[in-house]
């Protein structure tokens, strides 16, 4: 029997609705994939921001920064004598204080020049609290001068300054 006008119309309507829902589903899949991608990008950007923040906080910490009496702070200068004692102090106060500053991260200071006769420079692990199951990890480095008051010129009193690197790894 030939389909009636109404039946053709119904079929047409159903077909249109079918196409509409197919398009809607495609749209939703595309949207959620985009949101997911954008979220990952945002997380990565947040980790990068945090890495820069942790570096800034490290080099400006009174516990590590060089001081010259009451004069303005020494920027990009870390005190070796302070660094010799800081890791022990920080490790004893991670949960009650320093976690609020650094969160999940590791902060290491390395002496790059001069090196010892064995070709090694001193290393200080200032903060060590990595995240075990991390999604993102970002490393950031800054170069600083390491002031060692224990090594001074006998006649001039000038203090030894080494070239060093602050390496920060943040986790999320």
């Amino acid at each position: 029997m030939r389909p009636t006008k109404a039946q053709i119309q119904m079929t047409e309507t159903i077909a249109v609705l079918f196409i509409f829902f197919v398009l809607l589903i495609f749209g939703m899949i595309f949207y959620y994939k985009y949101v997911g991608f954008s979220l990952k990008e945002e997380q990565q950007a947040a980790v990068e921001r945090r890495a820069a923040e942790v570096v800034t906080k490290t080099i400006f910490m009174p516990e590590i920064q060089c001081t010259t009496g009451n004069l303005l702070q020494n920027v990009y200068c870390l005190d070796v004598m302070k660094m010799n004692v800081l890791p022990t102090l920080v490790s004893g106060h991670v949960e009650d204080y320093y976690f609020s500053i650094f969160s999940f991260a590791t902060v290491t200071v390395q002496e790059l020049y001069p090196l010892s006769k064995e070709g090694k420079g001193r290393t200080w692990k200032i903060y060590d609290n990595p995240k075990k199951d991390f999604t993102f990890k970002k490393q950031s480095s800054f170069y600083v001068v390491l002031r060692d008051d224990a090594v001074r010129g006998q006649f001039s009193g000038r203090v030894k300054h080494s070239f060093g690197q602050v390496v920060v790894e943040v986790y999320s």
């Binding site: 516990e63 004598m81 302070k82 010799n84 004692v85 102090l89």
Partner: peptide, 10 residues
């Protein structure tokens, strides 16, 4: 308290 501890070591 924490900074004083660092200076004690220094």
């Amino acid at each position: 308290q924490l900074v004083s501890a660092v200076y004690a070591g220094r």
